[in-house]
Design a protein around this nucleic acid. Structure first.
Lengths: 232, 232
DNA sequence: CGAAGCGTTGAAAATAATCAAGTCATGTGG
DNA sequence: CCACATGACTTGATTATTTTCAACGCTTCG
């Protein structure tokens, strides 16, 4: 693993306390995983034996029911660590991970991670920090799901995605993701049809510009307003 | 703090690795907090400066929106530790905690906990374990909320409560909690009315016996069936 | 005894899901 | 390079579910 990787790792909250040298060893111990769009990294229920770091691309964490209904738990981009708990305990992954776009990841086996945590107990506190942050976000989303109507939730989903994955587009803030309406629905907890109707409506109103696997936010203020309180 | 408390703490997953002596010191360092039914322990947004252990009673963790809508995140009984993260980092509580019944709790300030974690880094791993388990449960509930109809969710809520707080009752499995229909609704993500209707229906069908702040499960099998797939 | 809190139930309304039938791009193979 | 198959998206009509609003009965407790 090269210097480039090492620099990327320096941006990871888990490893902030590490010395230059340790970081280099870590980069060297990592395995490089590459996945094309739609390819799987691991499935829910698989033994959780590796911790992953996203170098580039987007990873979708999702859960599927017996009935085949899918819910997207998170969409993670560049410079994100996930499956941290795999480094601490022998369990199974609680979600499946798939690449949404071609992605490069670094990963470490549990034994390597466990050894690192043994040498640097303070890193476990960092790991806790990461998990606690995810917990808080999930609690917020749970709360939204329980109390808000679909349009409000969808607005918030878009704002969250914009925050994490937005970049300047032709006329506004473009979501740098190739999300289908189905994906949007699964992120929001609704159906493909309802999501489509709402997106169409907002496009007509000039709030969004949307297309095939593409959403661009034109009027951020209006969207934020919709996120706060449903329309009259 | 006395020997009784010390024994109670021995049952805590966080402290399993501790020596007898450390456990005694821990019990001594603890503060005893008592709360009557409905009394508050801390509010969402308060500085998170104490970690709590439930000696007896039930604690409700909930979130409230600006509009006053409440969602119950968890109902915790005896022998549960919560607000673990307060021992690791300076943050604010992400939820409010209230006693549902008269409760006795032990608590420790952040500095005490931090010192303990410093002496015993392996405890941080235990703490992570506890948080990860909560995370998994929340992910499951999130998934249910997104994909299942109200009756199925309510059935699962009851089964979860029975698992954690059930004890043999007159004719079945009694939930050892004084939950109102409102509480049940907030746990399930629905309204007081819908929850009431469903509980009434199941009582008529002989699956439950319900009353004022009381639910007893008479036909566990039927409830499990309802949790799996909605009625025809 | 009275008030407050908790629970139930009916009727109406709103919301979202479902079903069905399209259109429109996109990219692929002929 | 074009035809076509596929996947993505849209939209209307219908249906189901759930919420909302309103009214009332029963307990429990002060």
């Amino acid at each position: 693993m090269n210097r480039e990787n090492q620099e990327s790792l320096g941006r990871c909250a888990l490893f902030t306390d590490l010395q230059e040298e340790e970081l280099r060893d870590l980069a060297r111990a990592a395995r490089l995983d590459e996945r094309g769009a739609g390819e799987n990294l691991f499935l829910m229920g698989d033994p959780a034996d590796r911790v992953y770091w996203i170098e580039s691309g987007q990873i979708r964490l999702s859960k599927v029911t017996e009935q085949g209904e899918e819910v997207i738990v998170a969409v993670l981009g560049k410079d994100n660590l996930f499956a941290v708990v795999a480094g601490l305990r022998e369990t199974t992954y609680p979600v499946s991970a798939d690449a949404m776009t071609p992605s490069r990841l670094l990963s470490w086996g549990r034994s390597d991670m466990a050894a690192l945590f043994g040498r640097h107990p303070e890193l476990v506190v960092n790991a806790m920090e990461i998990v606690a942050a995810r917990m808080r976000e999930l609690q917020d989303r749970y709360h939204e799901l329980a109390t808000l109507a679909v349009p409000q939730r969808l607005a918030r989903t878009l704002l969250r995605l914009a925050d994490e994955h937005g970049r300047p587009g032709d006329q506004g803030l473009l979501l740098d993701l190739r999300l289908t309406r189905q994906d949007l629905a699964e992120l929001t907890g609704t159906t493909l049809y309802t999501a489509s109707r709402i997106v169409s409506g907002w496009s007509q109103a000039g709030i969004l510009s949307s297309g095939r696997r593409r959403v661009e936010i034109l009027d951020l203020g209006a969207l934020e307003q919709l996120a706060r309180s449903g329309p009259s």
